[in-house]
């Protein structure tokens, strides 16, 4: 019997502090940077308060996800941690043991096998790619993918180093922290299964966005050639999206909700216009959720899903496309039909 994989529940953890874009850009004397909010569509972002870090965000998101799930922690077969940052105890980067094994111990998922993956902002969708394979092949029944991103510290480094609007660290000012988790489960329902397609790394562009640990200061730093990576992502993703749609026997206009990686409002809109030019069609709605959260790296797609589920924007059988762009350059597509999960979130009020 062939199995399929579907999203069973989603959970999030919002960090404790908020930082408005105007407060952030007020630290600069360069007038153009003060228009960052207008340019990116980000008016504020949530950032970690004292005692919060990648691990606490991931753990709390996992607990929140379980609160919406029909599964108990001890029924999970696999946990994959997908975050770029692995900060535990402040800005201390943990190499071993894996984050996922510590999350397993904390939430009591005593029989889950665990490992961490790292694939830049495509982390959680790479987790979906792996979980989908294991579930469809009958190796596991349930898998939790989880990510806690503590990336606002990159902003501290950028503040000290940005001198002009051409700075390669400008993108660091769009970043915000968040934790998200999702449980994927086995289903025999052919119609509601995830279609995972086109995951590709175009490594000729791998130097366009790089992030690493600081040598002489806590936390990390990121350098991005934003315009070049955006142009490459938009151009190269068209055949990949086309192929994914062909695989599902769908056209772009059948997609009710297109959720791209949340970088900035202007780049999402210009990307959408390029798709319209190339494919001659538009999806129902392009989801942009970064106004209050900023770019939260690997967590953006599931954060957008959670937000729209809680706002009861989705209806059962709506077709959703998650489109990932990440440094590497990674492009990937996940298409699925909304199932009964839409009734478990939000208030009818």
């Amino acid at each position: 019997m062939g199995w399929n994989c579907q999203i069973e529940s989603i959970g999030v953890k919002s960090p404790g502090r908020r930082l408005s874009t105007s407060d952030l850009t007020g630290k600069f004397k360069i007038p153009c940077i003060r228009k960052l909010s207008l340019l990116t569509g980000i008016s504020e972002r949530k950032i970690c308060s004292a005692g919060e870090d990648s691990f606490s965000l991931a753990e709390d998101a996992a607990r929140n996800c379980l609160s919406y799930s029909k599964y108990r922690a001890d029924e999970l077969d696999m946990i994959i941690n997908c975050s770029i940052t692995k900060y535990k105890g402040g800005l201390s980067h943990l190499y071993e043991p894996s984050f996922s094994s510590l999350i397993r111990n904390r939430i009591g998922a005593r029989r889950a096998i665990t490992f961490d993956i790292s694939n830049a902002c495509a982390g959680m969708l790479t987790g979906v790619y792996i979980a989908d394979k294991f579930i469809r092949q009958g190796i596991i029944k349930t898998c939790m993918i989880v990510s806690g991103e503590y990336i606002s510290n990159l902003c501290d480094h950028a503040i000290k180093n940005i001198r002009t609007t051409l700075s390669s660290e400008l993108s660091s000012l769009t970043l915000g922290d968040y934790g998200t988790a999702a449980i994927l489960e086995r289903t025999a329902d052919e119609k509601n299964g995830l279609i995972v397609s086109g995951f590709t790394t175009l490594s000729q562009y791998s130097d366009l966005c790089t992030g690493r640990q600081n040598r002489n200061a806590p936390g990390g730093k990121m350098r991005t050639k934003a315009r070049k990576i955006h142009q490459a992502a938009v151009k190269e993703s068209v055949p990949i999206v086309k192929e994914a749609l062909r695989k599902c026997r769908l056209s772009l206009k059948d997609i009710k909700w297109l959720i791209p990686h949340q970088t900035s409002r202007s780049s999402i809109i210009s990307g959408a216009n390029h798709y319209f030019e190339c494919l001659g069609e538009k999806p129902g709605q392009i989801v942009i959720t970064l106004k209050e959260t900023g770019n939260t790296a690997s967590t953006t797609h599931f954060l957008a899903l959670y937000k729209y589920l809680n706002e009861r924007q989705f209806s059962e059988n709506d077709i959703v496309m998650l489109l990932c762009f990440a440094s590497g350059l990674i492009i990937g597509v996940v298409i699925f039909k909304m199932n009964e999960i839409v009734y478990r979130y939000g208030s009818t009020n």
């Binding site: 692995k86 190499y95 071993e96 043991p97 894996s98 665990t114 490992f115 961490d116 993956i117 790292s118 694939n119 495509a122 790479t126 790619y129 086109g198 995951f199 590709t200 790394t201 175009l202 490594s203 000729q204 190269e236 055949p239 990949i240 086309k242 192929e243 062909r246 590497g328 990674i330 492009i331 990937g332």
Partner: peptide, 23 residues
């Protein structure tokens, strides 16, 4: 191992890569 994706036939020759951290 980085071939640009130009058409459907090239897609079959694309490479996907990621890291695993599991000690």
């Amino acid at each position: 191992a980085c071939k640009p994706v130009n058409n459907d036939s090239d897609k079959s020759e694309s490479t996907f890569s990621f890291d695993i951290n599991n000690g």
